[in-house]
């Protein structure tokens, strides 16, 4: 088990290193010179050189990449002397446009993204799995066809269309929900809840549709398995056959994609957050792209990659608990 864990951690480190490298290369090549941005309007070539030297931008690529990498672990200092800026670990970079360390900017917005992600995940898991189960039980009947039709719709409607139409319908036309306002949970839980309700629904519909189909297919397939027949031949009640022999194998694959989907969503829901004006990581990314604030875009990218890799790892570990066949260290 320890060897397995060590192997996984090593693999994770390699993947993250490569992601860092690629991201850095892309932004190193594409990025407009930060020195020019900092220098402002009244700028001389000498001043630019001075700033470049201060920030270490005149150093070779590998040197800069190394400084960036070590900044992730031990932090780093931008500039020297009185203008020096401390960027504590994990330092994802420094936004010269907003004069803030990227890590802080992201951390500040992470709770909103997490709230959006957790709520949406709960919603789509509940809706997707239960609709999938109903569909599987009623296979071929009207209910099944109806649900399958709904999932098709759910999967094909783009997020932004859904977000805007929902907002128009529920807030403007019907007036069922108040106009979204940023309210902390401690101040007005109801308003807070109402505020997040629409983003949750919008984000969960596409995923719920996918999960419905997946659950349905898995359950129907599992019910065909020989071991389900064995269970019935043993005289187990249909309920027991279902719960013990069909559900567990059928729902295991759901854990895999759920881990990935959820981790990906934690890194920010770009469109949904933007449409609903939620100040999360996704909105930060969208704003930074508009402003061409490269260090922030890079920071968000790295965060998303990190979350997906960690999510994957968690899923792998969960799997060893759920599926005895991948359990390691148990001798045959």
């Amino acid at each position: 088990m320890i060897r397995f864990l060590a192997n996984r951690l090593l693999g994770m480190a390699v993947v993250l290193f490569l992601v860092c490298l690629f991201t850095y290369v892309i932004f190193f090549v594409l990025s407009p010179d930060p020195a020019v941005q900092i220098c402002g309007k009244n700028c001389t070539p000498e001043a630019i050189d001075q700033i470049r030297a201060n920030l270490g931008l005149d150093q070779p690529f590998w040197q800069q990449f190394w400084t960036f990498l070590s900044g992730l672990f031990v932090g780093r200092t931008y500039g020297t002397g009185a203008n020096a800026v401390e960027c504590v670990a994990p330092c994802l970079g420094y936004s010269f446009q907003s004069s803030q360390p990227v890590t802080g900017m992201i951390l500040q917005r992470l709770p909103v993204s997490a709230t959006v992600a957790i709520g949406a995940a709960v919603l789509w898991l509940l809706a997707g799995v239960s609709a999938g189960l109903v569909s599987a039980v009623r296979e071929g009947k009207f209910t099944d066809r109806f649900i399958t039709g709904l999932t098709l719709t759910g999967m094909s409607v783009p997020n932004y269309v859904l977000a805007l139409s929902l907002q128009f319908l529920l807030v403007v036309t019907l007036g069922w929900l108040p106009f979204p306002q940023a309210v902390p949970f401690s101040e007005d839980p109801l308003q807070w809840f109402m505020n997040f309700l629409m983003p949750w629904i919008v984000l969960s519909i596409g995923a719920a549709a996918v999960y419905t189909r997946l659950t349905r297919a898995n359950v129907i397939e599992t019910l065909q398995e020989n071991y389900v027949r064995t269970a019935r031949a043993k005289g187990l009640s249909p309920g027991l056959v279902w719960r013990r022999h069909a559900l567990r194998p059928a729902l295991t694959p759901i854990v895999t994609i759920f881990g990935m989907d959820f981790a990906g969503l934690l890194g920010g829901a770009l469109i949904t957050e933007t449409v609903f004006g939620l100040n999360g990581v996704g909105k930060l990314a969208a704003d930074s792209i508009t402003k061409n604030d490269q260090p922030v875009i890079m920071g968000v990218t790295l965060l998303a990659a990190f979350l997906v890799v960690v999510g994957n790892m968690v899923v792998d570990l969960l799997y060893t608990a759920i599926d005895p066949r991948v359990r390691v260290g148990s001798a045959a």
């Binding site: 398995e225 020989n226 071991y227 027949r229 194998p249 005895p324």
Partner: peptide, 11 residues
């Protein structure tokens, strides 16, 4: 049954 591997639940 015929195929003992698939006739036993792996879980």
């Amino acid at each position: 049954f015929q195929d003992p591997l698939s006739s036993l639940n792996p879980y």
